[in-house]
Design a protein around this nucleic acid. Structure first.
Lengths: 127, 127
DNA sequence: TTAGGTGCAAACAATTTGCCGTGTT
DNA sequence: AACACGGCAAATTGTTTGCACCTAA
C-alpha cells in the first residue's frame, strides 16, 4: 500500500548521478537529461532527488540555507540533526589532514572544514 | 574614491553576529535586530553580510545551492574555489575524530563530514 | 483497478538588485 | 559636495506543491 514503483525518470536521474562525479545540482542534472528526455521536468528531478536522499540512496551535500560565523579562524562545527542548531567545536585544527588530502588528490589545499552531525546535549536527553 | 565608510547598520550586524554563537542565518539576524531597529531592512542585512564575508571579517558556512552525491559511504570532498567544482577525496574515514568531538563537546556524534578548499589540479596551473 | 509517478505551472522561499533619498567624510 | 549606505519593493533564483493525466503492478 505504501510501496514505491519502478520509474524510468528516477532510474535515469539516479544512474546519471552515479556516473557523474561532479556532485551536480538539480539544475545540472536537469540540463544534462533534458535534451534526450524532452518531457522531463525540473520538478521531477527535485522530487526524485528528495526521494532518493530520504531513503538513503544518495546524499545531500549542503546546509539548505546560508549561515554566518564571526569566528574566522579555522575551527570545526557540530550540527544537531534534531533541532538544527549549529555549535562551534573546540578541536585543534589538524594540518596533517591537509597534507594527506594533497597527497591523495594532487589538488592545492588551502584549508579544510570539519562538520560533525548528531544530536546535541539538549536534544539527546529528550529521547 | 572606492573606500568603505562607517555604517551603524554594518556595525550592528557584525556585533550581533560576533556575540551570538548560533551561526545565524540572515533571517535570524534580521529578526533579532528588527525590534530595536524598526527601519532596518532584510536587504541591508544580506548586503552587509556579503560585504563582511568578502572582506574576510566573517565566514559563510554553506554551499549556496544544494548538491547531490550518489556515493553514500562516508568520504570527504574537495571544493575548488576557482572553478567551483566538487571532487571526491580518497581519504579513509577517521573515527577518532568523532571520539575527539564527543569528548570535546558532549554532543552525540553520529558522523562527520570533511570538506577541503583550495584550487584544483586544473585551475592551479592557470596561475 | 489503484496508488504512485510525471508534467506543467503556480506558489514559496532565499537572496539580489535598482531606485532614490540619507548620512559620512 | 561626492559618493557610500540603507530602505523599500520588485526581480531573480532555487525549491516545493497542487492538479489532472499517465503508468507500473
Amino acid at each position: 500500500m505504501n510501496g514505491k514503483r519502478y520509474s524510468r525518470q528516477r532510474e535515469l536521474i539516479y544512474e546519471t548521478l552515479k556516473c557523474s562525479h561532479q556532485h551536480p545540482t538539480a539544475e545540472m542534472l536537469y540540463s544534462w537529461l533534458k535534451p534526450e528526455n524532452p518531457t522531463l521536468s525540473l520538478g521531477t528531478v527535485y522530487r526524485n532527488l528528495n526521494l532518493l536522499a530520504d531513503e538513503g540512496a544518495i546524499t545531500r551535500m549542503a546546509f539548505p540555507v546560508e549561515r554566518y560565523d564571526a569566528k574566522v579562524e579555522p575551527h570545526s562545527h557540530f550540527r544537531c540533526m534534531v533541532c538544527g542548531g549549529v555549535y562551534d567545536l573546540e578541536l585543534p585544527y589538524d594540518r596533517h589532514l591537509d597534507d594527506a588530502a594533497l597527497l591523495a588528490s594532487g589538488h592545492d589545499i588551502s584549508r579544510h572544514e570539519l562538520i560533525f552531525h548528531g544530536s546535541c546535549c539538549n536534544c539527546k536527553q529528550k529521547h
